[in-house]
Simulated scan of single mutants.
Amino acid sequence: MQRTLITSSAFGLLLALGAGQALAAAPDWSKVASKKVVLLYPGVSPIEWITTGTKHGGARALKKGDTCLDCHENETADMGKKIVSGQKNEPAPIKGKAGSIPVDVQAANDGTNLYLRFTWKQPAGGGEKMDKDNPVKLAIMLEDNKVERAAQSGCWETCHGDARTMPGAKDDKKTKYVIGGDLKSGKFYDLIQWKSNGKATDGYIADKRVMEGGKGLVDAKGEKKGDTWTVTITRKLAGGGEGDIAMAAGKTYNLGFAIHDDSTLGRFHHVSLGYALGIDTKADITAAKY
């Protein structure tokens, strides 16, 4: 009997069709504007460090309403290089690890779905292979302007010094969370993660991280050609599940994303600063209708 292999993308299509929603044609990415976003290696730089003036000189600017992007957009590569070397905020530097990853980010929508595309070259690696099943993972966080400072600090509001992979953490099960996080009040981050083993999860981060419950994810696929990775995420604008924010034309949302490169886990990732994502409206990254 002949067998048919179903890829993760095809499986996503079957799920969408089973739910009564067919996948629309993806945008012609050659016609979609691209924004270069440099992800940095953050080391041990939780929100508690970010907001403490005696440790972080930008804490005062943050209190005045400035964003991390305002101060650091053009120096993220230098910051990552310094941290990954162990000069600052990294007690356990990984030899050979890249300090930053430049990523081309594209966004578009068709009135029903949001499309996000991330492209980057594989950086140098080094150190222990913490996740042998996944050389690469990419996660995005979306927020609906309800978490305090989210528009300033991006997903840093979910990063805390007591999380399980932080130095001195006492609870090896504690992951990301939002202080005062609550689904009912909308104080949470919508979380989607793609893994290079072909699996994807749709969850959220409120008082704790939950890797399920969302129904907004339509498709997540990625591939490596030569030394270049490309990951594309398709998400229903309306969301519809637990921990899904509802997105609409003319509005902006907070976007942050992270790449776990070189089979890493936990805090040993590269992260973006916080960006505004506009749906049919001008923002740091604009998802225009095609």
Rank of each mutant, 00 (worst) to 15 (best):
G99D: 06
F268R: 12
A283L: 04
T230L: 06
K236A: 11
G250I: 06
A19N: 14
L191C: 09
P42D: 02
L273R: 01
L13A: 13
T119S: 13
A16Y: 02
L62H: 00
R149Y: 15
A10F: 05
G154P: 04
S34M: 00
D110A: 11
A150N: 10
T112Y: 00
I101S: 04
R60Q: 05
T119H: 04
A258R: 11
G180W: 05
K289V: 02
S100H: 11
K137W: 09
D171P: 00
A33E: 09
V105F: 04
Q122H: 07
T112W: 00
G86A: 02
E90C: 04
M1V: 15
L237S: 08
T281Q: 06
D171A: 12
K81L: 07
D227P: 11
Y41P: 00
K63I: 11
F188P: 13
P167N: 03
A238N: 11
K82W: 01
S34F: 00
F188N: 06
M166D: 13
I279C: 06
K174S: 08
G240A: 08
A258I: 12
P42T: 00
C68K: 01
G213Y: 10
Q106I: 07
I101K: 03
G53I: 00
A16W: 04
W156R: 13
E143Y: 02
K174G: 10
A19R: 12
A246M: 11
D171S: 09
T7Y: 06
D261S: 13
P93G: 11
V218D: 10
T201G: 11
K129T: 12
G86Q: 02
A22C: 07
F268K: 12
G154M: 11
P91V: 10
I83T: 10
D28G: 04
I279M: 04
G180H: 05
K176S: 14
G198W: 03
A124Q: 15
C71G: 08
V136G: 01
K95A: 15
D28S: 09
A10N: 06
G127H: 09
G250D: 09
V147G: 05
D284G: 09
L237N: 07
T7D: 12
H56D: 02
Y253E: 02
V103L: 08
H269A: 13
T119K: 13
W194V: 07
G274S: 05
G278K: 01
G266P: 03
W194S: 02
G127P: 15
A163W: 05
G243S: 11
A249C: 07
K199R: 07
A169Q: 06
Y115N: 10
L40E: 10
G278T: 05
M79C: 08
M211S: 15
D280V: 02
K95W: 03
K129V: 11
Q106M: 08
D70K: 03
A61P: 02
A206M: 13
I83W: 01
G278D: 06
